[in-house]
């Protein structure tokens, strides 16, 4: 465990909590893509099946349980508790265009052709693109609430910090997981355009709105 990995995990947790609190406090999930949230919940469920097979550390297991519970709670809030506020008309990204290719790819390119490993690979690939419905929704409505942009910032920062963690681990531990690295790079790149808007607009106190 190095500082970048820890900061990445914390940043990921902050993102998840920000979103949960935003929905809970405002009693509304307006502007949030339920589809992205379903994808993230699927990512956690398929990746953390190893909770039942191996024990790495108390930290590892507790974080996995927190991520899974929070992501499922978020999906519940969007589709059940605050369904009336869910902006489904703007959440029109075709998720099958992500899930089908990602599913196929995880069968073709993986570390080991076993059910657990294929599901892990699926979760890694799916996570890299799971934010697309949310970004698509923002591009459709042309704006995002400031709190939603903070959520996206921490979510993007998390994978960026993991990239630094992987460079660190390569040099100091000889650790190298090509699947995670390539997917993590794709994931981080998808946030770049958003990062630019976040720094140039949101951090200067302006609302994130896109030119028509």
């Amino acid at each position: 465990m190095n500082i970048f990995r820890l900061a990445g995990d914390v940043s990921h947790l902050v993102a998840i909590i920000i979103l949960l609190l935003k929905i809970w406090k405002t009693r509304s999930c307006a502007g949030i893509s339920g589809k992205s949230q379903i994808l993230f919940a699927s990512v956690f469920v398929t990746r953390y099946l190893d909770l039942f097979t191996i024990f790495i550390s108390l930290y590892n297991s507790s974080m996995k349980i927190i991520y899974i519970s929070c992501s499922i709670a978020t999906v519940y809030l969007v589709y059940f508790k605050f369904k009336a506020t869910y902006d489904g008309n703007h959440d029109t990204f075709r998720v099958e265009f992500l899930v089908v290719p990602v599913g196929g790819l995880s069968f073709l390119v993986n570390h080991d052709f076993s059910p657990m490993e294929i599901l892990w690979t699926f979760s890694i690939y799916l996570e890299s693109v799971a934010i697309l419905p949310q970004l698509f929704m923002i591009s459709k409505t042309g704006e995002a609430e400031t709190i939603t942009t903070h959520y996206l910032f921490f979510l993007g920062l998390y994978r960026g910090l993991y990239l630094i963690n992987w460079i660190w681990r390569y040099y100091f531990e000889g650790f190298f997981d090509l699947i995670a690295i390539v997917a993590g790079l794709v994931q981080t790149v998808l946030y770049c355009d958003f990062f630019y808007l976040y720094v140039t607009k949101v951090l200067k106190g302006k609302k994130l709105s896109l030119p028509a």
């Binding site: 990995r5 995990d9 990921h12 990746r47 190893d50 191996i54 790495i56 590892n60 974080m63 996995k64 991520y67 570390h111 080991d112 892990w120 993991y162 963690n165 190298f176 997981d177 090509l178 995670a180």
Partner: peptide, 10 residues
Amino acid sequence: WPFTQYHDEL
């Protein structure tokens, strides 16, 4: 092709 026995990251 590096094979990791288990995944220790989140």
